Amino acid sequence: MAALGATALALGFGLTPATAEAQDWPSGAVQLLVPAKAGGGTDAGARIISAQLQEQIGEGVVVVNSPGGGGAVAAEQVRTADPDGQTLLYYHTGFLSTYHTGGYDHSPVEEFTTIATFPVGGSFALAVDADSPYQSVDELIAATKETPDKVTLGVQFRSGSHFMAGLLTKASDAQFRMVEAGSDADKLVQLQGGQIDAAFVNTPGTLQYVENGDLRILATIAGNPERDPGAPDFPSLHELGYEEAVYGLDFIVLGPAGMDAGLVEQINEAFAAVLGNADVTEKLAQMRMPISPMGVAESQARIASSSEAVKATAEMLGLTN
């Protein structure tokens, strides 16, 4: 029997060799590298998913917050890890922006393994402090033209928020002073502290501050022109006439290049099962962050297509090196 080898045994039981090899996953605790600070929307979603994933696979899933370098530090740890599925990156497609603007040297599409892509129903909010003099997007834009380079717009350079800011600037001829404001959690603090006048922050994370009376949302931006169903009281930038301001993000799970195909399918299916869990669905809905699973082939096609679109946008905005 031993002379048949693993391949023959696998085929004899109707499995591909890749599927047979994948059954050892996980071999211990799985590290989920999250390039975001604790407290933001990306981190919160990762923790909801990881808690259920831990039950799903019967091993620990450790969320490691590593926001350094706009995601580059976490990405490098995953890129250079063993391709055994024990070290994974949980982030969003803002990572593509970082790559296409020169903030990271390794292609998320070509130098990693795409395990899963999760389209996100939701948006980002153009937010200001509750005491801000700007009651509308038009007022904010007008102020930038009256006093060029004075109104500060907080972004994370080379990330999705930088692209959103660039698209709004292109659509409106605004003259913001864009400043590095870090992650969403950082932006929320700086908005309330008056260090920045406005910022693009994920809408679910912003709404609690709106409800508390600390912030105000002027408009939203998403991957489609419509209002965000999770925040229907706020107009989209496209609706207000800024038609080029359309930009959305997907969450992604990446592993090192060279992962076994059967292992990739197994991990993808584990995440899909998590997102099919009613408790997880409810918690994400409460965060106004509905997430949908996709299979491996769909995920890989979607991230490749997104990468090309981000590259074209970066070139249009003059953000490439």
Rank of each mutant, 00 (worst) to 15 (best):
75 A>T: 03
84 D>L: 06
288 R>P: 06
305 S>F: 05
17 P>C: 11
14 G>C: 04
172 S>A: 15
200 F>T: 05
274 V>G: 04
290 P>N: 13
114 T>D: 01
233 D>T: 14
22 A>K: 03
210 V>P: 12
76 E>L: 13
284 L>S: 09
276 G>N: 15
272 A>W: 03
244 E>R: 11
252 I>C: 09
302 R>V: 11
233 D>P: 06
204 P>Q: 14
165 A>E: 02
288 R>G: 09
309 A>H: 12
281 T>H: 09
130 A>E: 08
127 A>H: 02
42 T>G: 07
265 E>I: 04
99 Y>V: 10
295 G>S: 13
235 P>D: 11
185 A>L: 11
255 G>C: 09
106 H>I: 01
274 V>S: 06
146 E>K: 11
223 G>W: 08
229 P>T: 04
44 A>H: 10
170 K>H: 15
24 D>G: 09
124 F>Q: 03
318 G>D: 08
134 Y>W: 15
163 F>S: 00
203 T>C: 05
22 A>I: 04
184 D>L: 05
261 A>G: 08
8 A>Q: 09
47 R>Q: 15
232 P>H: 10
132 S>E: 02
125 A>K: 00
209 Y>W: 12
101 T>I: 02
306 S>G: 04
146 E>Q: 14
245 A>F: 10
20 A>L: 14
124 F>E: 07
113 T>P: 00
313 T>E: 13
140 L>F: 07
255 G>F: 00
63 V>S: 01
120 V>T: 04
309 A>W: 03
78 V>D: 00
46 A>F: 09
36 A>D: 13
55 E>I: 05
10 A>F: 07
169 T>A: 08
246 V>Q: 09
65 N>P: 01
155 V>E: 06
195 Q>C: 01
228 D>M: 06
49 I>A: 14
172 S>T: 13
272 A>G: 05
145 K>I: 12
200 F>K: 06
29 A>K: 12
272 A>R: 12
133 P>G: 06
76 E>T: 12
180 E>V: 02
46 A>H: 03
226 E>Y: 14
296 V>M: 10
65 N>Y: 00
98 T>I: 12
135 Q>V: 09
179 V>Q: 09
98 T>H: 11
136 S>W: 02
